[in-house]
Simulated assay, not measured.
Amino acid sequence: MSFDSSVPLRWVDVDAQGHVNNALIADYLQEARVDWLQSGANAHLLGDATMVVSHQVEYLGPVFFSTTPLRVSLDVGVVGAARFVLGYQVFQDERLVSRARSTLCLYDYRAARIRRMTGAEREWFAAQSVALEPFRAIDGWRVGPDASEHTFTVRWSDQDAYRHVNNVRVFDYFAEARVRLTPEPGPDRMTQAAAEQLTWMVARQDVDYLGQIVQRPEPYRVRTAVAKLGRTSATLVAEVQDPLDDRVLARAHTVLVSGDVSGRPVPLPKVMHDSAAAWPAVRAVRA
């Protein structure tokens, strides 16, 4: 049986395009996930025993500010020895606005390793397990030698109870890098879009967490490349890297759609074609 969680909206969730920013959907999923865990026998896992491995998020419609909370319906998918998958449907006024999947694992932060579930922990997850419809794959790309680069520093408020950057904040880092995806000097991509009466809509975003990002004085960097172009959509791949050792700490695959002011898809503007020529992604090498 699905678990339903009521998630209130905040006025500050609304972005410059007049609707809730895409990154906030991951925040709402997190609120529902915490609500679900706190409701049952595995509430003890909150705070020091779970880690997000990946997210897949489909954006099906805009979310607008309202004093009526969203309804997030959560289901448990595959349950393994140390990992479990969650599925979500997000509704505003019973309109389906997003679907998502998350993979989480149990993690011993003191020993810095993944740990297996106890029998009782796995039993609680498995009792709720149902078959989840798989999402269409959009991964398979990597950032090549030529990429758009954006540096950022971690804010103190980006940290969570585990003393590393919360998984939701990583969506923000990728978004800030996308805004700056312009090969020529001048206004950023969003400013150009506003001047041309265009909007950019995120249709899908998958994030894989490959290492921990921590608060420190030294900056991190995001490298972004264009994987493929359609008539009205573009697929990007981006990586958060540690410049101190070049480790990739997170990777995102994002599908963007170009739209007019009403949200109707329109052909991609020149800036995206120029970006694809300047920063082409490369196919991932399968092991």
Rank of each mutant, 00 (worst) to 15 (best):
S2N: 13
S5M: 00
S6M: 01
D15A: 03
I25R: 10
I25K: 09
L37C: 07
Q38S: 13
A43I: 05
H44L: 02
H44N: 02
L45F: 04
L46Q: 04
D48K: 11
T50R: 10
V53F: 04
F64G: 05
V72C: 08
A82I: 11
V85T: 15
G87D: 07
Q89N: 12
F91Y: 15
F91I: 05
R95M: 07
A100H: 06
R101C: 01
L106H: 09
Y109N: 03
R113Y: 03
I114M: 15
R115M: 06
R116Y: 08
M117G: 06
T118E: 12
R122W: 07
R122S: 14
Q128R: 15
Q128T: 08
A131Q: 07
I138F: 09
I138T: 15
R142M: 11
S148Q: 06
V154Q: 13
V154M: 11
W156G: 07
W156N: 09
S157G: 13
D158K: 11
D160M: 08
A161V: 03
H164D: 01
V165D: 04
N167F: 05
R169E: 13
F171T: 01
A177Y: 08
V179Q: 08
R180D: 12
T182F: 09
P187L: 13
D188M: 10
D188G: 09
D188I: 12
R189C: 09
M201N: 07
Y209L: 05
P217G: 08
P219R: 02
K228Q: 14
R231E: 09
T232S: 01
T232P: 00
S233Y: 00
T235R: 06
E239R: 10
E239F: 09
E239S: 07
V240L: 12
R247S: 15
R247T: 12
V248D: 06
A250C: 04
A252M: 11
V257S: 01
G259T: 11
S262F: 03
G263Q: 04
S275W: 04
A276P: 05
R283E: 15
V285C: 10
V285M: 11
